[in-house]
């Protein structure tokens, strides 16, 4: 992971110009989409897209910025979801947002523990050791029904999404709730990447010996990266459980989910905040478009099973094509295209 040259400072443009697209996107997301979207758009596309984007942002801090590969993202999502659920269930009158934050803190603590091997292991070896988190958490949540308030198969049901007396328990409400949480945490993550701590993440990733020769504590940076990343991934897990699925079992946070988030990060672009959103868009939305398109064009000729598999082949092929065209991910591809248009 030493040769990544991925952070892309914008050159020659004033600071506000770089933020303009984000401001526009937020304006549309808050001001237009809630009025024009339908239930399918919110429930099946935008809410999962937002939750997975946030998980991607969290993992990107750890893997993209700090260079520590993790295959335990789904475990940290599960910890965030189940911990939030329990805090809200067991503490009378605990506000929903406090429950989410406590879920994130619990995920951070678990992330810290499973980040300890990173002090001795690097690269693939670390990735394999994070599998421990994946299997342990899923096992614990299934084995001990206390976590799911006595449900034998570990299923939990979302608490009502009410903040300050305002209910978000509708399609558009869940979308807005997710959007607010994701926007705030993404802003925090973005600020972090531009701070001294963010630079020390990159320093440890690129040259750990040089970083420690500058007085940076490699140990502290790695553990902090695990904690911060797991906090964000944990909150993303709570959103996934409460705003998207609404009933979820531990198996919903399996290794496939961990891989999905890692692919979001890699396809979107390592060490790029917007990359997480582009990657999640590609992973969540693209297959849906493809399957609708396939259904409409070829639905009469082939049965749905064949179309389903064909769609996976197409997505897989496109991932390979994208990564050959731009190994630094969609984020770098977008940067290249916009620069070309500006020149």
């Amino acid at each position: 992971m030493t040769d990544l040259t991925l952070s892309q400072p914008r050159q020659g443009l004033p600071a506000w110009a770089g933020r303009l697209p984000v401001a526009l996107l937020l304006a549309v997301a808050f001001g237009v989409v809630p009025f024009v979207g339908d239930q399918y758009l919110f429930d099946a596309i935008l809410v999962p897209f937002l939750a997975l984007s946030l998980a991607g942002v969290g993992l990107n801090l750890l893997t993209g910025y700090a260079g520590q590969v993790s295959l335990g993202s789904a475990a940290f999502m599960a910890v965030g979801a189940f911990a939030s659920y329990n805090f809200i269930l067991r503490i009378e009158g605990l506000p929903l947002l406090a429950g989410l934050a406590l879920g994130g803190v619990t995920a951070a603590a678990v992330g810290l523990v499973f980040g300890l091997p990173s002090l001795r292991l690097k690269g693939f070896y670390l990735a394999v050791s994070t599998l421990a988190a994946q299997f342990f958490v899923q096992w614990a949540l299934t084995k001990f029904d206390w976590f799911s308030n006595g449900n034998a198969s570990g299923v939990i049901t979302a608490p009502p999404l009410t903040v300050l007396g305002i209910s978000f328990d509708s399609s558009v409400g869940r979308y807005l709730f997710s959007l607010i949480v994701v926007a705030l945490l993404t802003l925090a993550a973005w600020r972090l990447t531009r701070s001294e701590i963010g630079r020390s993440f990159i320093a440890v990733r690129d040259r750990d010996v040089a970083a420690s020769s500058l007085g940076i504590s490699v140990l502290r940076v790695k553990l902090l990266a695990f904690a911060v990343s797991s906090f964000i991934v944990g909150v993303a897990g709570a959103l996934w459980a409460f705003a998207y699925l609404r009933t979820v079992e531990p198996a919903g946070f399996d290794l496939d989910r961990s891989f999905q988030i890692l692919f979001i990060v890699i396809i979107g672009g390592l060490a790029s905040i917007r990359g997480a959103f582009l990657g999640a868009g590609f992973i969540v939305i693209f297959p849906l478009i493809l399957s609708r398109l396939g259904q409409a064009l070829l639905g009469d000729t082939f049965d749905s099973g064949v179309l389903e598999n064909a769609q996976k082949i197409v997505v897989g092929g496109l991932i390979i094509a994208f990564l050959i065209a731009e190994p630094a991910g969609l984020s770098a591809l977008v940067a290249r295209l916009t620069r070309r248009n500006l020149n």
Binding site: I202, D206, R207, A210, V228
Partner: peptide
């Protein structure tokens, strides 16, 4: 042993890491 993912000035700024006292939340 420069940090390739950082710009020239950010590499140099990183040289001053020891002078930073502010914690995570202060920085965010």
């Amino acid at each position: 042993a420069l940090f390739k993912g950082l710009s020239v000035i950010d590499n140099i700024v990183t040289g001053r890491s020891l002078a930073h006292r502010a914690g995570l939340f202060e920085q965010i």
